[in-house]
Design a protein around this nucleic acid. Structure first.
Lengths: 337, 337
DNA sequence: TTGAAAGCGGTACCAC
DNA sequence: GTGGTACCGCTTTCAA
């Protein structure tokens, strides 16, 4: 039903090839023909069938993006960064959600691969790298974001989690905390890195390490934080500072403290990671480590495009973005003294 | 590079057609051939090239989704609802962000149309319906969500905004508010509907209408709410209840009240719309009208699929989902008396 | 400067 | 049951 190259060609008495060349700004077309074709294209509102083009060129101009959870503002913001760059270059973003389920993630990756996306950007929940073997077979470049795994030599863009953990913990120490606990995230490189940074800072300060797990990373991240904090409250002596894996965890932790009537930050200071947009609007504005997710998205898009355009496969690159401390009430002790 | 139908065919000494039929579960293939083919497909990890299939069938199995802002949890949640349904049916979701810019939105729609998505789901920022004329020309069905415009007879799924506005205002009245103001949203059917509901409830109660605009609907929705509330605070007598267009507006309003040292909800009660996931975690937990965005997404997906499968174009349908009141501290006066 | 022919990887139709 | 052939809408190559 839509207009085709051929329609324009026969109407104008030229060949399909000629029209096709005009479409792609080939130089070897006379100005006159060119203009005639262009004009008719405008009039008919011609749009090339990108599916057809994809078939012959082998390029779909689509990029697949697999996220664990679209609702998580971090991923939404990354997506925003992605679209910003991709749009300019004529690429489309195909989004798939894995719902934190490795099996589903694998299926979605295969689906996108069948769709022949030009590149894949994945925030993986996988433990192993099987899904990516497929991508490599098909020579579809892929970029991992946020969560990395050892053993897979892949392109990666993330935040320096160890540094984030170190900064957060260091900040608590500077605020005078003497017993700092860590509510650890679910398995994955981020949780590991942040914990490492935490341990580093705590050890450096000669303090004891207190780590509790926050179970699975699902919709109930705040509930997890709530439970974890209650566990911590039963310790004696109690911690006087808590570094949480992420902001939802931290929000849950804050709630637990409020429920228990604990003073924040004087009795217990709390800090998270992610700097969620609304972190400053909470009952107790939450200190956090900012990850600049939008920049992360933009970098990932640029890297993906670079990989697509590269003729030779170069050595995988690993890019770590610098986290940034954002101090709010939940840790601001000195000011209150 | 990836395996093709043909590869399997020659290997097995059968024709491409036979393999193709097996792929699509055609009945007229002997069990033996079938199994041989299937087995080889497994071994080679064959994935049909969907771009090729799309070209011949005229169906891409892709659905385009255009949103004003991915970061807005409402749209993220709708997207989540969409993927949930579409995944099951083998469809992909192509997301484009219009960044609240009508011109950009138009471009993105055209782009998706060129991609030959099977259907379009749009939360539009448009004023007129030009972009959709294109879709109709190409016979690409589309579903509008959230924002409707008169004059365009289109399929629509949204929340009953008038009811939402009425419910919220009615609730304030029941909480004893005598002077209720409304912070209106940007142009669009939602803002209109909610305002209408507000006016209805206020009039019904014999109260005065006080409406202030919150300027444009952008990233700074909370800043807008902040400003609007400060405007309201200068009135005398002040309002004692405020119904805000959405939660970000309301959060800004709350902040303004806290800054001004006004007691919530006793001096001024505040309610929003959207029931953002973190509305209960704010400094003052925010009452809100829930929209069940995920269900909205699921409905939109189902409707889109129905349109795709329908051979005849039926009369446009308009579906309004029921909003639901969620009462929290920011309006809970009775309990405190 | 222009265009004919081949083909991208599938599917549809109809004969065998 | 099976497969030949044409073709989806476009690009590529190469000859005119």
């Amino acid at each position: 039903m839509p207009v085709r190259l051929k329609d324009i060609a026969v109407e104008l008495g030229v060949s399909v090839v000629t029209v096709s060349k005009v479409l792609r700004n080939h130089s070897d077309i006379s100005l006159e023909t060119r203009n005639r074709v262009l004009e008719r294209m405008k009039q008919l509102n011609y749009r090339p069938n990108l599916a057809a083009r994809a078939l012959v060129t082998g390029k779909t101009n689509m990029i697949g993006f697999v996220v664990p959870d679209l609702l998580h503002p971090f991923f939404a913001e990354v997506a925003k960064g992605l679209t910003k760059i991709l749009r300019k270059r004529g690429y489309c973003l195909v989004i798939a959600s894995s719902e934190e389920d490795p099996e589903l993630e694998k299926q979605e990756i295969e689906h996108l691969l069948a769709r022949r996306v030009d590149a894949l950007i994945v925030a993986s929940t996988q433990v192993n790298a099987n899904s990516f073997a497929q991508a490599e077979e098909q020579k579809t470049p892929f970029v991992l974001i946020d969560r990395f795994f050892e053993g897979l030599s892949a392109n990666f863009i993330g935040v320096d989690d160890e540094k984030a953990g170190y900064m957060a913990t260091r900040h608590l120490i500077e605020q005078g905390c003497k017993r700092i606990a860590h509510i650890r995230g679910p398995q994955g490189s981020s949780a590991l890195g942040r914990e490492l940074g935490y341990r580093h800072a705590v050890k450096e300060a000669g303090q004891e390490e207190i780590v509790v797990a926050s179970a699975s990373m699902d919709d109930q991240a705040d509930a997890r934080g709530y439970d974890a904090m209650n566990t911590l409250l039963e310790l004696s002596p109690r911690p006087d500072g808590v570094f949480c894996f992420n902001d939802p965890n931290a929000i849950g932790a804050l709630t637990a403290l409020l429920d228990a009537g604990v003073k924040i930050p004087d009795e217990i200071a709390v800090i998270g990671v992610g700097n969620l947009h609304y972190a400053g609007l909470l009952r107790v504005p939450l200190s956090s480590v900012d990850q600049d997710s939008s920049a992360l998205g933009e970098e990932a898009a640029k890297m993906a495009l670079r990989l697509i355009e590269a003729k030779v496969t170069s050595r995988p690159k690993k890019v770590l973005l610098e986290p940034k401390l954002v101090i709010r009430t939940s840790t601001l002790r000195n000011a209150q003294k």
